[in-house]
Amino acid sequence: MDRSDRPVIAEFVDVHRHYRMGDNVVRALNGVSVQIRKGDYLAIMGRSGSGKSTMLNILGCLDRPTSGAYMVGGRDVARLDDDALSEVRGREIGFIFQSFNLIPQLTVLENLEVPLFYQGRVGPESRRKAEYLADRVGLGKRLEHKPLELSGGQQQRVAIARALMNDPLFLLADEATGNLDSNTEKEILDLFDDLRRDEVTIVIVTHNQKVADRADRTLWLKDGQVERFDVNRPAEVAP
């Protein structure tokens, strides 16, 4: 199936994000337009200060554009209030962070259930799903462990499973392998490949070329604008 046949699940339309810093206005994003289609594996690259983090925050609905539109699941999040934005985060986006960000006092199982808890969907069903996903990321036997009893790679696997709990439109990974050694990094990237084969959409923000190379396409940001797109692999590889 050609990429253009797949539905658009998230779209930046001329997104600007300006911050006021004293008397200066910082133009973190300056007219970015980009489409994310189902099954995409997109890496966002750029130097620090290029607008990567801002783009990540807006993609993750943690922040809103100053102008322009960001459409997710058919809704323009720039117009949503805080509650609705939280709802979109909880239903449509699967966050994966550099430092894993598991909640230390909760067990693996409880951590996995957190996203569903906020949608009032915790029950036997969510437990089965957590068990299934833990199994899928290779941690089926660790459900009752606390995060700090696990290695970094294992913690990131839990975080990936957690990101998948709500069947999000896309996974949003922020330097997902930045805290891991190269072996573990490879394992996690292999897991991403694995997920991609199951048509999971992945957006990964990174400054690591090795990581970006594993994606189908790379978006280069510079000074708050799209510098270029690299296509690393023909899109039709996607099943």
């Binding site: 993750g60 943690l62 805080d82 509650d83 939280s86 709802e87 985060r89 909880g90 239903r91 966050f95 962070f97 960000n101 598991l102 909640i103 230390p104 957190v114 996203p115 906020y118 949608q119 957690r162 709500n166």
Partner: peptide, 16 residues
């Protein structure tokens, strides 16, 4: 604070 950030990222509303 960080835990609050995580929970908010995972869909917690202010009321939660």
């Amino acid at each position: 604070t960080r835990e609050i950030g995580i929970r908010r990222a995972l869909g917690a509303k202010k009321k939660h």
